[in-house]
Simulated assay, not measured.
Amino acid sequence: MARRSNDGAAVMLTSGTSERINALFSLRVWRSLWLLINACFLILLLPFRGRRRSVVAPELAEKGGGAKEEKPSAAPAKVVRVPAAMAPRKSTVDKEVAARRALAVKRVMEDNCGGDNNDTVREFSLFVTSRGDSIFTQSWTPVKVKVRGVVVLLHGLNEHSGRYSVFAKKLNANGIKVYGMDWIGHGGSDGLHAYVHSLDYAVNDMEFLLLLRTFDRRSYSLEALDPKVRQSVAGVVLTSPAVGVQPSHPIFAVLAPVFSFLLPRFQVSAANKRGTVVSRDPEALVAKYSDPLVFTGSIRVRTGYEILCITTYLQQNLTRLTTPFLVLHGTADSVTDPEASRKLHEEASSTDKTIKLYEGLLHDLLFEPEKEEVMDNIIAWLTSRL
């Protein structure tokens, strides 16, 4: 398995489903599951039906465009008319991506045009991955302060980089330039909203962003990165990381790979975390869950499976972390486990490692009433290493 980065605000796939385990063992459910598998198998076979007929027209078109002229056949060729309803059109996902991207761009432009924003220049850009996906990135550059270092910010599951604009500007005030990237399926980037086929995509895209920009060796990341870019990373800051996420019952670990293959985009209503209390600040909660760029629906099967996979990988490789890091966690976090952060701090091989546990704080540390204290602690750790 390729090395991956952990997601800072992961939503548990199995939340609220433990009481439904017994239903999985009923004869009716297993019969339904068998019918579903057979139906999916038949659906997979549909593209192969009539394939020979469907490729005739393209082949004739290719021959017609070649240098060698083909002799007309004795029998007239059949003309196939395609109904207008079957003509290719912009998909619902494409329209939704366009709307999200337009909103992300609008926020950057409005922020730049604001009268109070004289100390920071905020810009956006897109880059195309090897997969063909367009990834939305943005940057915050200090205007009046000399740049001493760079922070690359990778947001958590279901959110986007723009949520951290206030923090980015505070970093700017301390001479730190900030780059942010929206995951595939998040913010202004391509993909079905909140659908992550592989968390390796986020890692690979972040690596590309690091290589695309000319970072010096005094750069920092807010998430763990692949060792390929370790030389460009001077330290890692982890806020409420999802180091330890376990299924509520072992059967889910067995079924997850099957359903992630058959129904990867299916949303698990039992794991819906909409409205989860992640901050004790009411205004912060309203701002988060009313933001169109924040996904508030039920978690998708494949995304949840990826979270389980990355958690297993992290648990088996904690000792391989050697990069200097700071991990911060609220002791009252109900989304990710603060004890897993404690375990990370204890087992990591890094000689420069720090843990900060905030008594009574919830998951979104940078949006808690004590956010100024959290930001100051992060900035102090960063600037002491510049």
Score class of each variant (00 low, 15 high):
residue 268 V to Q: 07
residue 360 G to R: 15
residue 7 D to Q: 13
residue 232 S to N: 10
residue 197 H to Y: 14
residue 120 T to Q: 09
residue 371 K to V: 04
residue 257 P to G: 03
residue 135 I to G: 01
residue 84 A to N: 05
residue 181 M to E: 08
residue 358 Y to I: 01
residue 190 D to W: 08
residue 294 V to G: 00
residue 293 L to F: 12
residue 189 S to I: 13
residue 264 P to Q: 15
residue 122 R to P: 00
residue 321 L to D: 06
residue 162 G to S: 05
residue 109 M to A: 08
residue 270 A to Y: 01
residue 59 E to I: 15
residue 196 V to D: 00
residue 136 F to E: 09
residue 145 V to M: 03
residue 140 W to T: 06
residue 334 S to L: 08
residue 249 H to G: 01
residue 122 R to L: 12
residue 273 K to Q: 14
residue 370 E to C: 07
residue 294 V to Q: 02
residue 250 P to I: 07
residue 59 E to K: 09
residue 144 K to D: 13
residue 7 D to H: 13
residue 205 D to L: 06
residue 57 A to M: 11
residue 302 R to Q: 14
residue 180 G to S: 14
residue 119 D to G: 07
residue 342 R to H: 10
residue 282 P to R: 14
residue 131 R to Y: 05
residue 145 V to E: 03
residue 28 R to C: 04
residue 100 R to W: 13
residue 24 L to E: 13
residue 134 S to T: 11
residue 187 G to P: 01
residue 312 T to S: 13
residue 39 A to P: 02
residue 339 E to P: 00
residue 298 S to F: 01
residue 8 G to A: 13
residue 64 G to T: 13
residue 245 V to R: 09
residue 2 A to M: 12
residue 297 G to T: 03
residue 37 I to E: 05
residue 238 L to V: 02
residue 210 L to E: 01
residue 63 K to N: 14
residue 207 E to Q: 14
residue 210 L to Y: 03
residue 16 G to K: 11
residue 272 N to C: 10
residue 195 Y to R: 04
residue 59 E to M: 15
residue 158 N to Q: 11
residue 112 N to V: 02
residue 186 H to M: 08
residue 147 V to T: 14
residue 263 L to T: 12
residue 140 W to N: 01
residue 360 G to F: 02
residue 165 S to E: 06
residue 222 L to Y: 12
residue 279 S to A: 05
residue 168 A to H: 04
residue 188 G to Y: 08
residue 290 S to Q: 08
residue 371 K to C: 05
residue 231 Q to V: 07
residue 175 G to L: 07
residue 314 L to Q: 04
residue 343 K to E: 10
residue 110 E to Q: 15
residue 56 V to G: 00
residue 141 T to M: 06
residue 156 G to M: 11
residue 241 P to R: 05
residue 79 V to S: 07
residue 300 R to M: 08
residue 316 Q to W: 07
residue 149 G to T: 08
residue 292 P to Q: 15
residue 84 A to C: 04
residue 307 I to D: 00
residue 166 V to E: 06
residue 92 T to V: 08
residue 34 W to S: 14
residue 212 L to N: 11
residue 212 L to P: 00
residue 223 E to D: 08
residue 221 S to K: 11
residue 356 K to A: 05
residue 176 I to Q: 06
residue 328 L to G: 02
residue 329 H to P: 04
residue 12 M to C: 05
residue 149 G to L: 04
residue 211 L to G: 06
